[in-house]
């Protein structure tokens, strides 16, 4: 699918940057014909994925790097890729189970939010190399809606 517009962010794995990342992606997504509620959901999933990279991927080491690429595709869907070069995930199926967390003080709901609020979620991860989460959210284009 061709990309109509994209933004690429690269930032330090600092907690301060979680709100920066979700605000940026939310602002970018507002170019699409979507509701405020859609934007809130998009901000939530970005917050979850970036927090995961910092907490789990990098074990809160602030000197690492996180990349986020957000694109509007030709069919007006929004694609978000969040990538870290951290610890990686041994067992992706287990990690995605609702309420599973490797940290007993956490809720284990991050992947559940991502899966529920987005239309597609793909996780690619290699232990010791890092994790890449791809999220896709479809928005019916205005033309389609007019026809319906």
């Amino acid at each position: 699918m061709n990309v109509k517009n994209y933004v690429r962010l690269e930032f330090s794995s600092l907690p301060e940057n979680v709100s920066f990342a979700r605000s940026c992606v939310g602002a970018f997504a507002s170019q699409l014909d979507c509701t405020l509620e859609d934007i809130e959901e998009i901000k939530l999933v970005v917050s979850e994925a970036v927090s995961n990279s910092i907490i789990h991927g990098y074990n809160n080491d602030p000197s690492q790097t996180i990349e986020v690429v957000v694109s509007i595709l030709e069919n007006n869907s929004l694609e978000i890729i969040i990538k870290d070069y951290g610890r990686g995930i041994e067992n992706i199926d287990q990690a995605m189970e609702p309420t599973y967390s490797s940290d007993p003080s956490r809720m284990g709901l991050g992947f559940t939010f991502m899966r529920s609020f987005m239309d597609e979620m793909d996780v690619v991860s290699e232990p010791g190399k890092g994790t890449s989460v791809r999220l896709l959210r479809c928005f019916p284009s205005q033309d389609h809606r007019a026809m319906a």
Partner: peptide
């Protein structure tokens, strides 16, 4: 104005 699963974890704790 915003809460994510870290905020929910605070409440559950």
């Amino acid at each position: 104005s915003f809460i994510d699963s870290s905020g929910l974890g605070l409440i559950i704790g």
